[in-house]
Amino acid sequence: MYDFLTGPVLWATFLISFGGLIVRAVLYVRGLDWRLDRVAYRPNLKYGIRGGLRSIVAFLIPFKARLWQTRPGFTLIFFAFHIGLLVTPIFLEAHNVMLKQAFGFSLPAMPTGLADGLAWVCLVGGLFLALRRIAFPEVRIITNFYDYLLLVISVLPFATGLIARYELGAYDFWLCAHILSGEIWLICLPFTKLSHVILFFLSRMQLGMDYGIKRGGMKGTDMAW
Protein backbone atom coordinates (compact mmCIF):
# COMPACT_ATOMS: atom_id res chain seq x y z
CA MET A 1 0.00 0.00 0.00
CA TYR A 2 2.75 2.41 1.03
CA ASP A 3 4.68 1.76 -2.15
CA PHE A 4 1.60 2.21 -4.26
CA LEU A 5 0.68 5.48 -2.57
CA THR A 6 4.19 6.86 -2.76
CA GLY A 7 4.71 5.50 -6.24
CA PRO A 8 2.27 5.81 -9.11
CA VAL A 9 -0.40 7.58 -7.06
CA LEU A 10 2.05 10.23 -5.94
CA TRP A 11 3.27 10.79 -9.47
CA ALA A 12 -0.25 11.06 -10.73
CA THR A 13 -1.07 13.40 -7.89
CA PHE A 14 1.81 15.72 -8.66
CA LEU A 15 0.90 15.69 -12.31
CA ILE A 16 -2.72 16.50 -11.68
CA SER A 17 -1.99 19.02 -8.98
CA PHE A 18 0.81 21.02 -10.50
CA GLY A 19 -0.40 20.52 -14.03
CA GLY A 20 -3.84 21.61 -12.96
CA LEU A 21 -2.51 24.70 -11.25
CA ILE A 22 -0.54 25.65 -14.33
CA VAL A 23 -3.66 25.23 -16.44
CA ARG A 24 -5.59 27.41 -13.99
CA ALA A 25 -2.96 30.10 -14.20
CA VAL A 26 -2.86 30.02 -17.98
CA LEU A 27 -6.62 30.10 -18.23
CA TYR A 28 -6.77 32.99 -15.81
CA VAL A 29 -4.32 35.12 -17.71
CA ARG A 30 -5.85 34.24 -21.04
CA GLY A 31 -9.27 35.11 -19.71
CA LEU A 32 -8.27 38.62 -18.82
CA ASP A 33 -9.96 41.06 -21.12
CA TRP A 34 -8.68 44.63 -21.21
CA ARG A 35 -11.99 45.93 -22.38
CA LEU A 36 -14.26 44.10 -19.97
CA ASP A 37 -11.88 44.50 -17.05
CA ARG A 38 -11.28 48.05 -18.19
CA VAL A 39 -7.57 47.83 -17.59
CA ALA A 40 -5.15 48.49 -20.44
CA TYR A 41 -2.75 45.74 -19.39
CA ARG A 42 -0.54 45.52 -22.40
CA PRO A 43 0.21 49.12 -23.43
CA ASN A 44 0.98 50.06 -19.83
CA LEU A 45 2.68 46.87 -18.74
CA LYS A 46 5.44 48.58 -16.80
CA TYR A 47 3.01 50.49 -14.63
CA GLY A 48 0.97 47.33 -14.31
CA ILE A 49 3.80 45.15 -13.12
CA ARG A 50 4.89 47.75 -10.63
CA GLY A 51 1.38 48.06 -9.25
CA GLY A 52 0.88 44.32 -9.26
CA LEU A 53 4.03 43.57 -7.33
CA ARG A 54 3.27 46.27 -4.77
CA SER A 55 -0.13 44.76 -4.32
CA ILE A 56 1.23 41.25 -3.78
CA VAL A 57 4.00 42.30 -1.46
CA ALA A 58 1.68 44.39 0.68
CA PHE A 59 -0.44 41.36 1.47
CA LEU A 60 2.36 38.83 1.66
CA ILE A 61 4.09 40.54 4.54
CA PRO A 62 2.37 40.38 7.89
CA PHE A 63 1.10 43.76 9.12
CA LYS A 64 2.10 45.57 5.96
CA ALA A 65 -1.31 46.13 4.39
CA ARG A 66 -3.83 48.24 6.29
CA LEU A 67 -6.03 45.17 6.54
CA TRP A 68 -3.43 43.25 8.48
CA GLN A 69 -3.08 46.13 10.91
CA THR A 70 -6.77 46.37 11.66
CA ARG A 71 -7.00 42.84 13.06
CA PRO A 72 -3.68 41.86 14.61
CA GLY A 73 -4.99 38.70 16.30
CA PHE A 74 -6.43 37.32 13.13
CA THR A 75 -3.34 38.31 11.18
CA LEU A 76 -1.15 36.34 13.56
CA ILE A 77 -3.21 33.18 13.39
CA PHE A 78 -3.70 33.54 9.68
CA PHE A 79 -0.02 33.89 8.87
CA ALA A 80 1.02 31.18 11.32
CA PHE A 81 -1.49 28.83 9.73
CA HIS A 82 -0.33 29.52 6.20
CA ILE A 83 3.35 29.43 7.05
CA GLY A 84 2.89 26.11 8.85
CA LEU A 85 0.87 24.77 5.96
CA LEU A 86 3.54 25.59 3.39
CA VAL A 87 6.80 25.34 5.25
CA THR A 88 6.26 22.08 7.14
CA PRO A 89 5.72 19.72 4.19
CA ILE A 90 8.54 21.23 2.17
CA PHE A 91 11.23 21.17 4.82
CA LEU A 92 10.14 18.13 6.80
CA GLU A 93 13.00 15.66 7.16
CA ALA A 94 10.94 12.62 6.25
CA HIS A 95 9.73 14.25 3.03
CA ASN A 96 13.23 15.19 2.06
CA VAL A 97 14.40 11.64 2.58
CA MET A 98 11.87 10.59 -0.05
CA LEU A 99 13.02 13.38 -2.29
CA LYS A 100 16.59 12.22 -1.95
CA GLN A 101 15.63 8.64 -2.75
CA ALA A 102 13.73 9.67 -5.85
CA PHE A 103 15.92 12.40 -7.27
CA GLY A 104 19.14 12.24 -5.38
CA PHE A 105 18.85 15.68 -3.85
CA SER A 106 17.07 17.18 -0.91
CA LEU A 107 16.20 20.49 0.64
CA PRO A 108 17.58 21.44 4.01
CA ALA A 109 15.55 19.70 6.64
CA MET A 110 14.27 21.49 9.71
CA PRO A 111 14.62 20.19 13.22
CA THR A 112 11.93 17.74 14.26
CA GLY A 113 10.86 19.92 17.15
CA LEU A 114 10.20 22.84 14.88
CA ALA A 115 8.32 20.65 12.46
CA ASP A 116 6.16 19.34 15.28
CA GLY A 117 5.55 22.86 16.47
CA LEU A 118 4.53 24.07 13.04
CA ALA A 119 2.22 21.12 12.58
CA TRP A 120 0.55 21.94 15.86
CA VAL A 121 0.28 25.56 14.81
CA CYS A 122 -1.55 24.42 11.70
CA LEU A 123 -3.93 22.29 13.68
CA VAL A 124 -4.62 24.93 16.26
CA GLY A 125 -4.76 27.65 13.63
CA GLY A 126 -7.20 25.59 11.62
CA LEU A 127 -9.28 25.10 14.72
CA PHE A 128 -9.39 28.83 15.34
CA LEU A 129 -10.32 29.51 11.75
CA ALA A 130 -13.16 27.04 12.13
CA LEU A 131 -14.25 28.52 15.43
CA ARG A 132 -14.35 32.07 14.07
CA ARG A 133 -16.60 30.82 11.32
CA ILE A 134 -19.02 29.76 14.03
CA ALA A 135 -18.49 32.61 16.43
CA PHE A 136 -18.65 35.71 14.23
CA PRO A 137 -21.95 36.47 12.52
CA GLU A 138 -20.23 38.28 9.66
CA VAL A 139 -18.25 35.13 8.88
CA ARG A 140 -21.01 32.64 9.73
CA ILE A 141 -23.35 34.09 7.12
CA ILE A 142 -20.93 33.43 4.28
CA THR A 143 -19.67 30.09 5.58
CA ASN A 144 -20.99 26.87 4.10
CA PHE A 145 -20.19 23.18 4.38
CA TYR A 146 -17.64 23.46 1.63
CA ASP A 147 -15.56 25.89 3.69
CA TYR A 148 -15.33 23.43 6.59
CA LEU A 149 -14.56 20.59 4.21
CA LEU A 150 -11.64 22.47 2.74
CA LEU A 151 -10.39 23.28 6.19
CA VAL A 152 -10.56 19.59 7.09
CA ILE A 153 -8.82 18.60 3.87
CA SER A 154 -6.09 21.10 4.61
CA VAL A 155 -5.38 20.08 8.18
CA LEU A 156 -5.99 16.35 7.80
CA PRO A 157 -2.46 15.62 6.56
CA PHE A 158 -1.13 17.32 9.68
CA ALA A 159 -3.46 15.49 12.04
CA THR A 160 -2.65 12.12 10.50
CA GLY A 161 1.02 13.01 10.26
CA LEU A 162 1.20 13.85 13.94
CA ILE A 163 -0.65 10.69 14.93
CA ALA A 164 1.80 8.66 12.88
CA ARG A 165 4.71 10.60 14.27
CA TYR A 166 3.70 10.04 17.89
CA GLU A 167 2.91 6.44 16.95
CA LEU A 168 -0.53 6.53 18.42
CA GLY A 169 -2.36 3.54 17.04
CA ALA A 170 -1.26 1.52 14.05
CA TYR A 171 1.68 3.29 12.51
CA ASP A 172 1.28 1.86 9.02
CA PHE A 173 -2.35 2.72 8.87
CA TRP A 174 -1.81 6.32 9.96
CA LEU A 175 1.14 6.70 7.67
CA CYS A 176 -0.94 5.60 4.72
CA ALA A 177 -3.76 7.80 5.90
CA HIS A 178 -1.29 10.66 6.09
CA ILE A 179 0.00 10.08 2.59
CA LEU A 180 -3.47 9.67 1.21
CA SER A 181 -4.79 12.81 2.87
CA GLY A 182 -1.79 14.73 1.58
CA GLU A 183 -2.50 13.51 -1.89
CA ILE A 184 -6.13 14.42 -1.58
CA TRP A 185 -5.08 17.89 -0.55
CA LEU A 186 -2.75 18.19 -3.51
CA ILE A 187 -5.37 16.97 -5.96
CA CYS A 188 -7.87 19.41 -4.50
CA LEU A 189 -5.59 22.34 -5.17
CA PRO A 190 -6.50 23.04 -8.77
CA PHE A 191 -10.13 22.05 -8.49
CA THR A 192 -11.28 23.91 -5.43
CA LYS A 193 -10.93 27.22 -3.71
CA LEU A 194 -7.52 25.95 -2.65
CA SER A 195 -6.50 27.08 -6.11
CA HIS A 196 -5.83 30.32 -4.35
CA VAL A 197 -2.30 28.97 -3.85
CA ILE A 198 -1.71 30.29 -7.35
CA LEU A 199 -4.78 32.45 -7.98
CA PHE A 200 -4.04 34.59 -4.94
CA PHE A 201 -0.99 35.88 -6.74
CA LEU A 202 -2.78 36.32 -10.03
CA SER A 203 -5.84 37.99 -8.58
CA ARG A 204 -3.75 40.29 -6.44
CA MET A 205 -1.57 40.99 -9.42
CA GLN A 206 -4.61 41.87 -11.48
CA LEU A 207 -6.05 44.31 -8.95
CA GLY A 208 -2.60 45.73 -8.43
CA MET A 209 -2.30 46.28 -12.16
CA ASP A 210 -5.68 47.94 -12.14
CA TYR A 211 -4.43 50.37 -9.50
CA GLY A 212 -1.02 50.65 -11.10
CA ILE A 213 -2.44 51.55 -14.48
CA LYS A 214 -5.87 53.04 -14.20
CA ARG A 215 -6.46 53.90 -10.60
CA GLY A 216 -3.60 56.20 -9.83
CA GLY A 217 -0.38 54.49 -10.82
CA MET A 218 -0.09 56.41 -14.06
CA LYS A 219 -0.90 59.59 -12.17
CA GLY A 220 2.18 59.00 -10.09
CA THR A 221 0.50 58.05 -6.87
CA ASP A 222 0.92 54.67 -5.28
CA MET A 223 -1.97 52.92 -3.69
CA ALA A 224 -1.50 52.76 0.08
CA TRP A 225 -2.66 49.20 0.55
Binding site: D33, L199, S203
Partner: peptide
Protein backbone atom coordinates in the same frame (compact mmCIF):
# COMPACT_ATOMS: atom_id res chain seq x y z
CA UNK B 1 -14.35 36.40 -17.87
CA UNK B 2 -11.63 35.01 -15.66
CA UNK B 3 -11.26 38.02 -13.39
CA UNK B 4 -14.83 38.08 -12.14
CA UNK B 5 -15.19 34.29 -12.27
CA UNK B 6 -12.12 33.91 -10.13
CA UNK B 7 -13.27 36.56 -7.72
CA UNK B 8 -16.51 34.71 -7.21
CA UNK B 9 -14.79 31.38 -6.89
CA UNK B 10 -11.84 32.02 -4.64
CA UNK B 11 -13.60 34.19 -2.10
Amino acid sequence: KSRTKTWLEIC
